[in-house]
């Protein structure tokens, strides 16, 4: 059974460790915050200038001066700090963020990522994505492996304009956990009931299968 979006987020959350500073992208990665393992402290960074993002506010707590990078209203926690955009990206580029978890339209077997534009379609901009993929210590992509139009997203080479080159460490999808290594893609975990063949069918490059291959546990 392929994982749901919630389950992909829950699996990604298992990568978090006590004391980690973490940046979550917009969309599915945001759900990761709901699954932080019990008993550890993880500080979420928002690139508009905040460390220590709390839950969404109640109606009474809403503060228009307090939003996350997705422009959603949020709250602070005990220990929150605020800073400018220059400080925020010094933190990101300088390698002080332990993990960035973000979505992608395409990932290549070299770890290239494309997630900011589709030429000739909508114009939005890269926001902080190029800085995050080049600066975070570890980059995890949480995405579905097949696009809505049925095309594969894990490719030999990205076709869309890149967000960053050789920067993705791990892809977590509805079917699998796949590491990007100098030798190519390494299949480490499969969703319950999913076979390596099922994953290979929707993955353009050849997968190597880890000797320790196991089922994803949620």
């Amino acid at each position: 059974m392929p994982l749901t979006r919630e389950q992909i987020a829950a699996r990604a959350a298992q990568e978090l460790r006590d004391g980690y500073y973490v940046n979550l992208g917009i969309g599915m990665p945001t759900l990761v915050a709901n699954y932080v393992p019990k008993g550890i402290d993880v500080i979420f960074q928002s690139e508009n200038g905040m460390l220590g993002i709390g839950p969404y506010p109640t109606e009474a707590e809403i503060d228009p001066d307090l939003i996350n990078a997705g422009k959603e209203t949020v709250t602070e926690i005990r220990g929150t700090s605020y800073f400018s955009s220059a400080d925020s990206f010094a933190m990101i580029r300088g390698g002080h963020i332990d993990i960035a978890i973000l979505g992608a339209m395409e990932v290549s077997e070299q770890g290239d990522i494309a997630n900011w534009t589709i030429p000739g379609k909508v114009l939005k901009g890269m926001g902080g994505a190029m800085d995050l993929v080049s600066g975070a210590k570890r980059v995890i992509v949480a995405m579905e492996q097949v696009a809505r139009d049925g095309s594969k997203k894990l490719l030999k080479e990205c076709r869309l304009p890149l967000t960053g080159k050789k920067c993705v460490n791990t892809v977590m999808s509805e079917l699998a956990v796949i590491d990007i290594t100098p030798q190519g893609l390494l299949l480490r975990e499969v969703a319950p009931g999913v076979t390596p063949d099922d994953v290979q069918k929707v993955t353009e490059p050849k997968l190597r299968i880890s000797p320790e291959l196991r089922a994803i546990k949620i």
């Binding site: 690139e47 400018s84 955009s85 220059a86 925020s88 990206f89 010094a90 990101i92 580029r93 114009l123 901009g125 890269m126 926001g127 902080g128 994505a129 190029m130 800085d131 600066g135």
Partner: peptide, 20 residues
Amino acid sequence: FLAGELEVELNPQGTLAERI
């Protein structure tokens, strides 16, 4: 933008902050 009436220069957010 699509009508060519507006010029746009996109910068990565951290690059924009640091350029300023």
